Computed example of a mutant assay.
Amino acid sequence: MTLSLERTAAILPADFPELEADATADGHRHMTRLAAEFALNRTIFHATYTCRVNGRLAGVGAITDEPAMTVQTMWRMRRLYVHRQFRRREVARTIASALLLEATSKVSIVTVHAGNDGAARFWEAIGFRPVEDQEWSHEAQVLAGPEVR
């Protein structure tokens, strides 16, 4: 199995609709939102990465400013999705690591909003800690660089 990571430029890859269709079939609409956001205002994303397994689009993830009002500048990891056929193959971890590296030396905290228990377990496994009473569910400090395990 060969994993390859690519920083996405101004447009989503030509095979993105297959990933979007898988997300929709899996009950998730955030790939449709990602496509709409890319079409409307690509500049809201500090970085977007795609990951391929043996040349096939396996996942995508992006990072933006934290949309909630905060005292300090934070970034939020968002729109992370891995095709159901490619889960548990390090795709999500690879994308998350690249996004955390993007945040290093730019912000000290990266947030996420885990939409379900499985996502929460993933974020906690890579070093995010759960938080309460915030508009995000987990956060990670990236002062000295990402510490993704």
Results as ranks from 00 to 15, higher is better:
79 R>A: 15
114 A>P: 00
73 T>W: 09
105 S>Y: 13
78 R>C: 14
123 W>P: 00
106 K>V: 09
100 L>C: 14
81 Y>I: 04
74 M>R: 09
76 R>E: 15
77 M>W: 13
74 M>T: 05
97 S>T: 14
112 V>C: 03
99 L>C: 07
95 I>G: 07
99 L>K: 11
120 A>V: 00
86 F>A: 03
95 I>A: 06
81 Y>H: 07
77 M>F: 11
111 T>F: 01
112 V>G: 01
106 K>N: 14
108 S>I: 15
95 I>Q: 08
98 A>C: 13
111 T>M: 01
115 G>K: 08
86 F>P: 04
90 E>T: 10
92 A>F: 04
101 L>M: 15
108 S>L: 15
114 A>T: 02
74 M>C: 09
125 A>Q: 06
79 R>K: 15
86 F>S: 04
125 A>P: 01
103 A>K: 07
81 Y>M: 10
81 Y>K: 05
115 G>Q: 08
126 I>A: 03
125 A>L: 02
102 E>V: 05
123 W>Q: 00
107 V>H: 08
80 L>N: 12
82 V>A: 05
76 R>D: 15
125 A>W: 02
115 G>H: 06
100 L>R: 06
90 E>D: 13
87 R>M: 04
80 L>M: 11
76 R>M: 15
124 E>W: 04
115 G>E: 09
71 V>T: 13
110 V>A: 04
112 V>S: 02
104 T>I: 08
117 D>Q: 11
110 V>T: 05
100 L>W: 08
126 I>K: 00
85 Q>N: 15
94 T>I: 06
106 K>G: 05
92 A>M: 06
102 E>H: 13
93 R>M: 07
101 L>H: 15
77 M>A: 11
102 E>R: 13
117 D>K: 11
88 R>E: 14
111 T>G: 01
85 Q>T: 11
107 V>F: 03
97 S>R: 14
125 A>S: 13
94 T>Q: 12
83 H>Y: 05
94 T>Y: 10
119 A>P: 00
96 A>Y: 10
116 N>H: 09
110 V>L: 05
98 A>D: 09
88 R>S: 12
125 A>I: 00
126 I>Y: 00
116 N>T: 05
103 A>D: 08
118 G>C: 04
99 L>N: 08
111 T>D: 06
82 V>M: 03
112 V>D: 01
104 T>N: 12
94 T>K: 12
79 R>W: 14
91 V>E: 12
100 L>G: 11
125 A>E: 03
90 E>P: 03
112 V>A: 03
124 E>N: 07
76 R>Y: 13
98 A>G: 11
99 L>G: 04
71 V>M: 14
81 Y>Q: 09
84 R>I: 06
89 R>I: 08
114 A>K: 03
115 G>N: 07
99 L>P: 07
111 T>P: 01
115 G>C: 07
110 V>P: 02
109 I>D: 12
111 T>C: 03
109 I>F: 11
92 A>V: 04
85 Q>W: 13
111 T>A: 01
83 H>R: 05
98 A>V: 07
96 A>C: 14
99 L>I: 08
90 E>L: 13
77 M>E: 13
116 N>Q: 08
92 A>E: 11
91 V>L: 05
114 A>Q: 01
81 Y>S: 06
125 A>H: 06
103 A>T: 06
76 R>W: 12
107 V>L: 02
105 S>N: 14
120 A>N: 02
80 L>T: 09
93 R>Q: 13
86 F>N: 07
